[in-house]
Computed example of a mutant assay.
Amino acid sequence: MKNEEISYNTKKALSEALKQAMKHKPFQKITVSELIQACHVNRKTFYYHFADIYALLKWTFEQEAIGVVRSFDLIVDYEEAITFIMDYIEENEYLINCAYDSIGRDELKHFFYADFWALVVSIIEQTERMTRTRLEPDYKEFLSQFYMEAIAGMMINWIKEREHRDRQVVIRYIADTIRYSLLGILRSKGNQTTGK
């Protein structure tokens, strides 16, 4: 077995141990000691792979949800990508709720920020290519932050209000809002530069 495969398997085992622990106790009460004991590895091995338990949780989310979403064609598959995220949330309700209850809304958003930021920038850049329009760098950064905050905020709201909000309606609203507002912004900018 190659070193990369051994490393990945170790990370995956630690991730599974964390998920199991989160079924029974708050995130902040989970210790490195119990995770390494469950995986039969030593402390040095844990810290070789992760700076702390927060880094392990972030890696878990990245592997199980965000990494998959990156593979979607986000111009074509908005709704499919959002559906996948919602499926992941439902299947891992205990994990998300434990993280939410233990570290809070803002910190949970922070876990996803860098990765969702890259996704949102990708959506904007694909739409720029499609409309043959370029946004000023400052405005593109503003728009990326705007959409990132909106998507993350709406997903976290949905986590806590699922029983009262129709999932398909939320998916459609998020997808339509991004699609049409972004196309409108870029078409408007394109018309400004061509003098139409």
Rank of each mutant, 00 (worst) to 15 (best):
residue 41 V to K: 05
residue 50 F to E: 08
residue 34 E to K: 01
residue 90 E to I: 11
residue 17 A to P: 04
residue 69 V to H: 03
residue 66 I to Y: 07
residue 48 Y to D: 10
residue 81 A to T: 00
residue 99 A to M: 06
residue 25 K to P: 03
residue 22 M to T: 05
residue 42 N to H: 02
residue 65 A to E: 11
residue 42 N to S: 01
residue 56 L to T: 03
residue 53 I to L: 09
residue 31 T to M: 10
residue 83 T to F: 13
residue 79 E to P: 04
residue 61 F to S: 09
residue 15 S to R: 04
residue 75 I to D: 00
residue 79 E to L: 08
residue 94 Y to D: 10
residue 42 N to Q: 06
residue 20 Q to A: 14
residue 14 L to Q: 05
residue 97 N to E: 13
residue 73 D to K: 10
residue 86 M to S: 03
residue 93 E to Q: 15
residue 42 N to V: 05
residue 40 H to K: 14
residue 39 C to H: 02
residue 99 A to R: 03
residue 24 H to V: 07
residue 37 Q to R: 09
residue 96 I to R: 02
residue 82 I to L: 08
residue 83 T to Y: 07
residue 27 F to A: 08
residue 31 T to E: 03
residue 69 V to E: 02
residue 85 I to D: 02
residue 70 R to V: 13
residue 67 G to R: 14
residue 98 C to Y: 00
residue 30 I to E: 03
residue 18 L to D: 06
residue 29 K to A: 00
residue 89 I to C: 03
residue 50 F to V: 01
residue 65 A to Y: 11
residue 71 S to D: 10
residue 52 D to H: 06
residue 36 I to P: 05
residue 15 S to G: 06
residue 89 I to H: 02
residue 38 A to E: 06
residue 96 I to F: 15
residue 21 A to V: 03
residue 25 K to N: 01
residue 58 K to L: 11
residue 44 K to L: 06
residue 75 I to H: 12
residue 97 N to P: 00
residue 37 Q to W: 11
residue 88 Y to H: 15
residue 23 K to N: 12
residue 88 Y to M: 11
residue 17 A to R: 08
residue 44 K to V: 12
residue 77 D to S: 11
residue 68 V to R: 04
residue 84 F to T: 05
residue 74 L to Y: 07
residue 27 F to S: 01
residue 49 H to S: 10
residue 97 N to Q: 14
residue 49 H to C: 01
residue 48 Y to M: 10
residue 29 K to I: 07
residue 62 E to A: 15
residue 92 N to I: 05
residue 22 M to H: 06
residue 68 V to A: 09
residue 88 Y to W: 15
residue 57 L to Q: 09
residue 75 I to L: 14
residue 69 V to G: 01
residue 78 Y to L: 14
residue 63 Q to Y: 14
residue 60 T to P: 08
residue 90 E to V: 14
residue 18 L to V: 04
residue 60 T to K: 05
residue 75 I to S: 11
residue 34 E to Q: 12
